[in-house]
């Protein structure tokens, strides 16, 4: 078992023991690190950033700049108005708000439900617990596409088509991955805390929210971030369930940029809209970078 309590900030290298060897070997290693590794990382970083950069500069191009062939990276005529035009070209603000509503509600129900379920699996003793947890783990591996048609029919019987409910409600029933992730974390909460609180007469509900929840904050934030980015990026469920123009999320609303013929696409506006779509996740990433990394690595720690 990898020690999953290893905080994310420990990600920085710590291999004092490795830099032994002769002086020549050390110099060679240093050269290797300084020059070759750096060069590789710089080239890779540039390659990975290139699509983002191109997206942003295209968003700033005028129609004349767009038609230049072969293309140039920077616009000759910086057209900041493209960003404003997106809002009149498609109901971008509406889509944005819808996506935000869906994301926020999804995160809320995800955190609450998965936390309670994980608590039940990690901090309470009851018969059949481990058996049920096996079932949770098995469902981790179930291919999701099987559920598309049945859940679609289920929600259409419930008259939930063209509402946000099918996008949000399923998250209120826990997801195997988040349950697993939170349980791993909650297992490290010392039992003595809980039992002491119970002896003091605290209700289980209070223990959950006032003692355990604050302790689990790092894991909860990681789950919230993972849930938020997933909800923000979701494509298939809004495609299936949202039909009215006023209910669309960004993923589907932005398909308005496409047309039957690729020839009619407003590349500048499409890129301006795409650039605005990634603003929330990027802000979230810079604010909580270490939680991001923790979320990713927590899940992998098996």
């Amino acid at each position: 078992m990898i020690d999953i309590s290893t905080p994310a900030k420990r990600i920085s290298p710590r291999r004092a023991g490795r830099s032994g060897g002769t002086r020549a070997a050390r110099t060679a290693r240093k050269l290797w690190d300084n020059v070759i590794v750096r060069a590789f990382l710089i080239v890779a970083s540039l390659a990975f950033l290139f699509p983002l950069v191109w997206m942003i500069t295209t968003a700033l191009k005028s129609p004349a700049d767009l038609a230049i062939s072969p293309p140039e990276l920077l616009p000759r005529d910086w057209t900041w108005g493209n960003f404003a035009e997106v809002f009149s070209y498609i109901p971008f603000a509406r889509f944005f708000v819808n996506t935000l509503i869906v994301t926020v509600l999804t995160v809320l129900v995800t955190v609450v439900s998965n936390f309670l379920i994980a608590y039940g699996f990690a901090c309470l003793d009851w018969r059949g617990r481990d058996g049920l947890f096996y079932t949770v783990l098995i469902t981790l591996f179930l291919p999701f596409p099987l559920a598309i048609i049945p859940t679609f029919n289920l929600f259409s019987w419930l008259h939930w088509i063209d509402t946000f409910l099918p996008l949000i409600v399923p998250h209120a029933f826990g997801s195997a991955f988040f349950i697993f992730l939170l349980r791993q974390f909650l297992l490290q909460v010392p039992r003595e805390y809980l039992d002491a609180a119970r002896l003091d007469g605290a209700s289980e509900w209070r223990i959950v929210w006032q003692i355990v929840f604050p302790l689990a904050r790092p894991a909860v934030i990681a789950v919230a971030i993972l849930a938020a980015t997933k909800a923000w990026n979701e494509f298939l469920t809004p495609l299936l369930y949202l039909h009215s123009a006023e209910n669309q999320t960004l993923a589907i609303g932005m398909q308005l940029f496409k047309s039957e013929f690729q020839t009619d696409i407003r590349f500048d506006l499409m890129m301006a809209a795409s650039a605005m779509v990634i603003v929330p996740p990027v802000i979230l990433f810079f604010l909580c970078q270490r939680y991001f990394i923790r979320g990713i690595t927590l899940g992998a720690a098996k």
Binding site: S45, F48, P51, A251, M254, S274, V282
Partner: peptide, 16 residues
Amino acid sequence: ALYLPTLIPLFALAFV
């Protein structure tokens, strides 16, 4: 830098 592209939703990445 290497992590940033993973933040682009797939539908937007497809557009790019």
